[in-house]
Nucleic acid binder design. Structure first.
Lengths: 336, 336
DNA sequence: CCCGGCCGCGAGAGCGCTCTCCAGCTTTGC
DNA sequence: GCAAAGCTGGAGAGCGCTCTCGCGGCCGGG
């Protein structure tokens, strides 16, 4: 209905070019077994009529849709409020899909109800595969879909034992590097503001902190936030109260670090002179805080690209490694 | 291929329920002309077999796809670097589409080449309509698609004469309100940092500033930026040089305002005591600048919702108003 | 010069669904 | 009590495409 004027069909093109439907199909799909002159006349007919293959018809017979779903948590989830995670992933994914000439279908997993919706959708043969960017590592969706034979790749190591392949960044390594940086700078009392412990990112970044600190014979000083700015400020106040002597803090997200910087300022501590601060994520804002934030960059766009790349291979029937971990990188600015 | 185990077809369900394909179709599509007992047994069969309608087959015959495309400019465009525009639009759109049970296909218009790609795609009957969130108002895509009979709604008033329906926020009114706020506060020399004048947002916000200022018998003092933080800082320095007496500045985006605040601090001007600053957008960051930024909020999520709503109506064959303008709102914090 | 093989093309059978008939049955009005 | 009207459900024709199969023409080898 809605798509206005009738679009030409294979049949029409065949008629015009004076060949059969099959031949047009061959030309359109790039088969080599067509004589050059016939091929040319078909291409001319296609051009003249403005023929575009009907996707529904094609995928009805091929059983492939050339589109891929990306399931994202509803961005109202506070975690995604203002970092560039969400757009970054999308950008990476769509870059990769563009090359592969696949389409991106975006699904917001807002409520529990959307689980069913997404499941149904994937089962309807609407997409060739699903990428799940879940924050809560315990999401059952990936496993369910996999069981149903839908190719799935996750973003972020799933919690619990799961055989669903995933792509993640090296949070543990990044956190360890941050702590090492603080140790190397001679900091003695290195605290951390950890992320929520029901998220893989929160868990891993704390683990990296702990491991590295243990190696340096310092004791750990931990406060927990929920990745928001406010929670960062609150955790910072808490830490200052617990250990007024602390001279460094590794914060599990830049947003929380931003809050922590504010709290430190209010408390009259100079950064980095009195207290060194290192964040995590390297969001845009990190370059503009006062002072500019030293942080751990995670390659978000690359993460998206890798996610897409893995899924495409999986959907193409290839075997893929069970997980890919992308390196993080220290970005030294002025706060540490 | 990729979608693992064979999914049951209508035929299978019909066989199991002991009815015809047509009847199953009727039940699945909610026709009322089916006897309750038959209806129940069909539903049971559907349940037992885990039947999910094949989308491709369905849309082949109905000519509808139940999905809608959202065309976004490649977010690397500096304008989208860190405001919440991109995720906000997506969120609004997908909220509305979820209600309508439509799917969202995301297309990044990265290069000129993608124009063809998107055109082809829309023409392939892959989607029932297209929403174009173009920054450069002179984009030919909307008109092209419309001409081809594809329902299109734009985000942002298109430049030039165009009959493509659009949804926009009231930039002119918002800018005017900001200036009025400054006038009411007794500010005498009110400058502006305008956005790029090849974008509708840049043009309209400057127009609002000019109009309102003219009404108050003050002269306009204009510098132009490109919506980035750096350009905001640079423009601010320029303005201070041009008119050291200025006591207020309306900045066409929060990002530029952030840059301007930095420049003012460096120049030793206190905000708002010496210079009042008002931004535009109300991005998350505005609450955390030093001092917190008074700004004009644009309802981005609502914009997305309205965009989707209009397109759905259009694709549904309804007539819609040629444009919808959503109100902006002053958010008074401490910078003015 | 004839035959087997190969290559290029057309015929035709579906893919899974919707929807238009139309048949058969019940209901209703006079 | 009978015809007309009303419903319910089935049969069947496609939607536009791909792909298998097989036919005919051309080539090369014997």
């Amino acid at each position: 209905m809605s798509i206005g004027r009738a679009r030409p069909t294979l049949e029409k093109v065949a008629l015009r070019a004076g060949v059969s439907r099959a031949t047009v199909s061959r030309v359109v799909n790039g088969s080599t077994t067509v004589a050059p002159d016939i091929r040319d006349s078909v291409l001319r007919a296609v051009q003249e009529l403005g023929y575009v293959p009907n996707h529904a018809a094609r995928s009805l017979v091929t059983q492939r849709t050339n589109s891929i779903a990306l399931v994202l948590p509803e961005p109202s989830t506070r975690v995604f409020s203002d970092d560039q995670f969400f757009p970054g992933i999308i950008r990476g994914v769509s870059q990769e899909l563009e090359v592969a000439e696949k389409q991106l279908v975006l699904m917001m997993a807002s409520s529990a109800a959307s689980h069913d919706r997404i499941e149904q959708y994937a089962m309807a043969g609407h997409v060739d595969g699903v990428m799940v960017a879940s924050v809560h590592g315990a999401d059952p969706l990936p496993a369910t879909l996999t069981r149903m034979g839908v190719p799935v790749v996750c973003n972020g190591r799933p919690l619990g034992r799961s055989t669903v392949p995933y792509v993640d960044v090296d949070s543990v390594g990044g956190a360890a590097a941050a702590v090492r940086h603080l140790v190397d700078a001679g900091r003695q009392r290195i605290a951390t503001i950890a992320g929520p412990q029901d998220m893989v990112a929160g868990i891993d970044r704390l683990a990296g902190y702990r491991t590295e600190l243990r190696g340096s014979a310092r004791r750990s000083i931990v406060a927990v936030g929920d990745f928001t700015r406010e929670s960062g400020a609150m955790a910072m106040r808490q830490l200052l109260e617990d250990d007024p002597q602390l001279d460094a803090v590794f914060v599990a997200s830049d947003l929380m670090a931003h809050g922590a910087l504010g709290a430190l300022r209010v408390a009259g501590r100079r950064v980095p002179d009195d207290v060194a601060v290192i964040g995590f994520d390297d969001i845009e804002l990190a370059r503009y805080t006062e002072p500019p934030l030293t942080t751990v960059r995670q390659p978000i766009v690359d993460l998206g690209r890798e996610l897409a790349r893995q899924l495409l291979r999986l959907a193409g029937g290839e075997d893929i490694e069970p997980f890919v971990v992308l390196p993080t990188e220290m970005v030294v600015r002025e706060s540490a």
